[in-house]
């Protein structure tokens, strides 16, 4: 394998990290408030609202149902408007965020649902406002579960980012497609896949260790 390919792979790794990290952060910036909104307005939430819950739940389900590649193509005009281009890593971030934010919202909702209802009741009995319950009880109590969700989201977004290689996205996915699929360079394709596997492993393992470290529920 020549140095040109090695340089290409290094660049691909850099681009993949750039896409996935920026997208994960952005997906959480949108997904956390959305997840909290879903939790709060659900039937057994702290401020039940059937209409708001139904609308957001429906929109989230619709976006999540659209296959990622179709989503990328469908929102091309939107992507162009936001970042000025439709190819390359930066352009991939837009559909990645659009696809991941609803997914993250559901992950956040399910993490918040795990918080013991008794603890929330106690917080209410002490005179907490709803905002205090969300900020000081729900999110801190759900923190370990939220972090586990984040490692899952990261791996999912990484998978999407590789798919984006088919439609002009950058990163390792693009290398795998361009060299492995179009040029039959199986070795390059296998190496990119191996690198992707490695990245998922590292983040999953690191995330789990971090959760173990911060979770106060079982530490003796």
């Amino acid at each position: 394998m020549d140095s040109q390919i090695l340089g290409l792979l290094a660049q691909g790794i850099g681009e993949t990290f750039y896409m996935v990290v920026v997208s994960t952060v952005a997906a959480y910036v949108i997904g956390i408030p959305l997840g909290v909104l879903l939790y709060v307005t659900a039937e057994d939430g702290i401020l039940p609202n059937k209409v708001i819950y139904a609308i957001f739940s429906f929109v989230i389900n619709v976006v999540r149902s659209v296959p990622f590649l179709i989503l990328v193509v469908a929102i091309l005009p939107f992507t162009r408007k936001v970042v000025g281009t439709t190819i390359g890593s930066t352009a991939t971030i837009v559909p990645l965020v659009v696809a991941a934010a609803p997914f993250v919202a559901r992950m956040v909702e399910s993490s918040l649902k795990e918080v013991d209802a008794g603890v929330i009741e106690a917080a209410k009995a002490m005179g907490s406002t709803n905002w205090q319950i969300i900020r000081k009880v729900l999110i801190p109590e759900a923190r370990p579960s939220l972090l586990i969700g984040m490692t899952i989201s990261f791996a999912t977004i990484l998978g999407y980012s590789a798919m984006a290689g088919f439609v002009g996205g950058g990163g390792l996915g693009a290398i795998a497609v361009n060299y492995g699929y179009y040029r039959y360079q199986v070795d390059v394709m296998l190496i990119t896949v191996a690198i992707l596997v490695l990245i998922v492993q590292i983040f999953q393992e690191g995330g789990m260790r971090l959760v173990d470290k911060i979770d106060r529920r079982k530490k003796l």
């Binding site: 013991d116 008794g118 603890v119 009741e121 106690a122 209410k124 009995a125 002490m126 005179g127 907490s128 406002t129 009880v137 801190p140 109590e141 923190r143 370990p144 979770d215 106060r216 529920r217």
Partner: peptide, 23 residues
């Protein structure tokens, strides 16, 4: 008013309901 009144009404529970992530 209700939140303020609740500060004068302490409550304890069968399952204790402590915040698990706080000391």
């Amino acid at each position: 008013e209700l939140r303020e009144a609740r500060r004068s009404i302490g409550m304890i529970f069968q399952q204790f309901n402590l915040l698990s992530q706080r000391n």
